[in-house]
Computed example of a mutant assay.
Amino acid sequence: MNKEEIITEAKNWMQSHFKNEMTGHDWSHIKRVWKLSKDIHSNEGGDLFTIELAALFHDYADTKLTNNETKATETLIEWMETEEMPTNQIQQIIRIIQAVSFKNGKNAIKAITIEEKIVQDADRLDAIGAIGIARTFTYGGAHNREIANLDNPKNTTLQHFYDKLLLIPNRLNTKTAKNIAIEKQQIMQYFIQSLEKELNN
Rank of each mutant, 00 (worst) to 15 (best):
M1W: 13
E4F: 00
E4M: 07
E5N: 04
E9V: 00
A10T: 14
H17L: 11
H17R: 09
N20C: 00
G24H: 00
H25K: 00
D26Y: 05
D26V: 03
D26M: 01
W27K: 09
H29Q: 09
I30K: 05
K31W: 15
K31Q: 15
R32I: 08
L36G: 01
S37D: 00
S37R: 07
K38W: 14
N43A: 06
G45M: 10
G46K: 07
L48V: 08
F49C: 10
F49N: 09
T50F: 02
T50N: 02
L53V: 05
L53C: 09
L53N: 09
H58R: 07
A61Y: 09
A61F: 06
D62P: 02
N68P: 05
E69P: 06
T70F: 11
T70G: 09
K71S: 01
K71Y: 08
T73W: 05
T73I: 00
T73P: 01
E74Q: 13
T75E: 14
L76K: 15
I77M: 12
E78Y: 11
W79N: 08
M85H: 12
M85V: 01
Q89D: 12
Q91N: 14
Q91E: 13
Q92D: 13
Q98L: 01
Q98W: 06
Q98V: 01
Q98Y: 06
A99F: 03
A99S: 15
V100P: 10
S101L: 10
K110Q: 12
K110N: 06
A111N: 02
I112D: 04
E115A: 04
K117A: 04
K117Y: 08
L125T: 08
L125D: 00
D126E: 14
G129I: 13
G129T: 11
A130K: 15
A130I: 13
I131T: 10
G132D: 05
T138A: 07
Y139Q: 07
R145G: 03
N149G: 06
P153R: 04
K154P: 03
T157K: 07
H160W: 10
F161R: 03
F161P: 01
Y162H: 15
Y162Q: 13
L167Y: 00
N170Q: 14
L172E: 00
L172P: 09
L172H: 02
N173I: 07
N173H: 12
A177I: 00
N179V: 12
I180V: 07
A181Y: 12
E183P: 03
Q185P: 09
Q186P: 07
Q189R: 14
Q189V: 15
F191A: 14
Q193C: 10
S194E: 14
S194N: 09
L195A: 05
E198P: 05
N201M: 11
N201T: 10
